[in-house]
Amino acid sequence: MHLVYPAVLAALLFCTGLYGVLARRNAILVLMSVELMLNAVNLNLVAFDVWLRDTLHAGQALTLFTIAIAAAEIGIGLAIVLLVYRNRGTADIDRLRDLHEDAPGPDAGHGDREEKAEAAA
């Protein structure tokens, strides 16, 4: 098999995930796009491992490790997203602008949310 096919497919999948990470608003959709990027890397690792006929099979071992780390990452990421949703009432990442430089200060309408965030801190 030509090596270009898996390599190009991995590159295109990675760029699809990149677009999703940059363009999506919901945090869980961003996590899905991160999974796409990780899978593209996995495909590259497997293809190059099979091509090189490595005796240690470093590519396949690293693929297994990447899959395990991705599972851990999705668990922690979803826990963080659920915590943010519980405190803020939204999972949209472009509304979490508290660290923005000219963000409006906490006004009266946000008092409830501020209190909740304080309670969770």
């Binding site: 898996p6 996995n42 495909l43 497997v46 491992d49 099979v50 396949q60 693929t63 899959i67």
Partner: peptide, 10 residues
């Protein structure tokens, strides 16, 4: 695709 690349376990 992994199956086609003979990486069955993965």
């Amino acid at each position: 695709e992994y199956l086609l690349l003979t990486a069955e376990f993965i």
